[in-house]
Design a binder for these strands. Structure first.
Lengths: 341, 341
DNA sequence: TCAAAAAACGAAAACGTTTTAGAATAAAAT
DNA sequence: ATTTTATTCTAAAACGTTTTCGTTTTTTGA
């Protein structure tokens, strides 16, 4: 590996000058800069990030903490898309992305915070995780720049999907299609779920819809089996809903299976809607009506704001950034207005 | 940040002793080791990976190069699953994973190899990428330990999915179900495609099936629209196939749409099969018959072998490791034996 | 032409580790 | 008691950078 020392020797200048030339500092002449850069290319010089990080306390490396309850961070459609967008954005500013080691199995393993310090991350993005975990809280409370995705800590930048508006749009749409008996199978407890459930109720109330307790049920996110069961329960009610909302698209398909197994047609006999807008949802029948979360934008904004916080900590305002989703009108919610008349 | 210097002062020993105590070297007494470790915990000491890397030339960090033609590395179901398994495995050996910056957009950006050197990766896993890219080849030809996934370079460790066996199993199954007119919409040119196509032909020949040229068509991987079009073309043939194989499950659903749009029933009127075994495929109707690639195993073996190569370069044999997939008998291939009689 | 100011450069310390070679101490053998 | 050997420790160099501050060189202004 050719180092600055080699370069300095080859150029007949000091190491200090080489460093300054490559960093384009003012106190080295244009001529020397040129000479050094040329030689650097010639010798195939490349800096050593470890040395640079050691000296400057900046790694140009961003950590990402990304685990969900099912331990499937990367295979989670929503977060994979967010992460992909996040990565593309930080790369524009020449940052690298390393996934924070989450192996709690590891005997003498470090906590998230310890690992972040160990690696010298300039910042960390946290998503898809149990935000009540004390290790996560330690990290959030540390002095490392942090952005959280889909969860708000009051002292940190957060980028969240607008679940309130999303759910309102969805319920309103379903309402406009004539539905009054709307059931909601919601995900397990989390801030996202809370936002959606509360928005569901608020919207229903505003629209003058009464929601019987039995129309509200719980199922794990992305769990087709649970959604299947809850759906069956709903169908067994003496007064079943005309439309069922699911925690997410994946679960939605579990519901679809249940409904079809009962010999019912979607959307003729019963309507359904998901949440997320996973890619495949648009390509398979039935085309699930859903709220498409803007993962591209969420990832981008998380990255941009984290970098701003890293590079200009003083001028960055700490506040939640809300990204709106978009209603995708698939083919699973039937317009029953005509029928009703 | 508390460093070894602070620790040394607090323990009344030298920095060297601290280092050796923490690394459990033999030439420091059990008593001092204990003392140092205790103090370390007390003061909240944690090592600095940059300093360690600088000194030892080992970063305990593995790079992953992960781009596909559609620039969607992380959102690619197959590779996301492989990556997830890969990550979990390297974490057991206390490695971290950083995604290699792929931003070619970046003006003065580095090549893959340069970036790998810059970051000091102990090894690199390459997947999901155009392996004919000269930058990739430079990386593979470098002295950095490399494992390639689903592509074989003859001087490198490769972990590949057994596409030959997979396709043979699939065709054989379809054959056993009575089909003789089997079309194959294959993905665009790559070693994976070549393996599958050649296995397709070999198996057909062995089974005594003749495949007309027009039964073989090309479509991009994971592209529902293309699959849709090719399917339409196949259905328009004067002698259409009784079963269509697709490049992957995702594309398969595009084909399903085309078939249904023609008013045909799956599998009653025509059979189809995908490839990959994506998670959702088992949960939506029709349950796509497919070859489920063992992403868990692929990721695990890639990780284990890369680490072995890093840590015991001499004793590691360089050879391709083949991971078998598994036939998933969904509901999209009909047994037409009875019909034929 | 000479002093003053500005520009360009370099020496050296520092970042937090690891490691080598040797020094000090303790234990064992004579 | 002395030498030998084994054990435990330390000083110091090194890894490849950045940065401070001082020195040298060049330019400017009279």
């Amino acid at each position: 590996m050719v180092s600055m020392k080699d370069l300095a020797a080859a150029c007949n200048v000091s190491i200090a000058t080489v460093s300054k030339a490559l960093n384009d500092q003012h106190d080295v002449s244009a001529k020397t800069k040129e000479k050094v850069r040329k030689k650097a290319k010639e010798l195939g010089y490349f800096p050593n990030s470890a040395a640079k990080a050691l000296k400057t306390n900046r790694s140009h490396n961003i950590g990402v903490l990304f685990v969900d309850e099912a331990q499937s961070g990367l295979t989670h459609d929503f977060f994979a898309n967010v992460l992909d967008s996040f990565k593309r954005t930080i790369e524009l500013s020449d940052y690298d992305l390393t996934l924070v080691n989450c192996s709690k199995v590891n005997h003498g393993s470090m906590t998230y915070l310890e690992r972040a310090r160990y690696r010298g991350f300039d910042g960390v993005a946290i998503a898809c995780i149990d935000f009540r975990d004390s290790e996560v809280i330690d990290l959030v409370d540390s002095n490392i720049p942090v952005v959280t995705i889909d969860y708000i800590f009051n002292n940190r930048i957060a980028v969240i999907s607008d679940n309130v508006k999303g759910m309102r749009d969805l319920v309103t749409y379903v309402y406009e299609m004539g539905h009054r008996k709307i059931a909601y199978i919601h995900g397990n407890d989390s801030s996202v779920t809370q936002a959606r459930v509360s928005s569901f109720f608020t919207t229903c109330t505003q629209l003058g819809i009464e929601v019987p307790d039995e129309y509200l049920r719980k199922a794990d996110y992305r769990n087709t089996e649970e959604a299947y069961k809850r759906t069956m329960e709903l169908l067994d009610l003496s007064d079943p809903p005309t439309c069922i909302l699911y925690p997410d698209d994946f679960a939605g398909f579990g519901g679809v299976n249940a409904i079809r197994e009962r010999g019912l047609q979607i959307p003729d006999d019963i309507s359904v809607a998901g949440y997320d807008g996973i890619r495949i949802g648009r390509h398979i029948e039935p085309r699930l009506t859903t709220i498409r979360q803007d993962t591209e934008q969420i990832g981008k904004l998380a990255a941009e704001n984290l970098i701003r916080l890293i590079e200009h900590p003083r001028s960055t305002i700490i506040r939640p950034i809300v990204v709106e989703g978009e209603l995708y009108k698939g083919g699973t919610v039937k317009d029953i207005n005509r029928v009703a008349q």
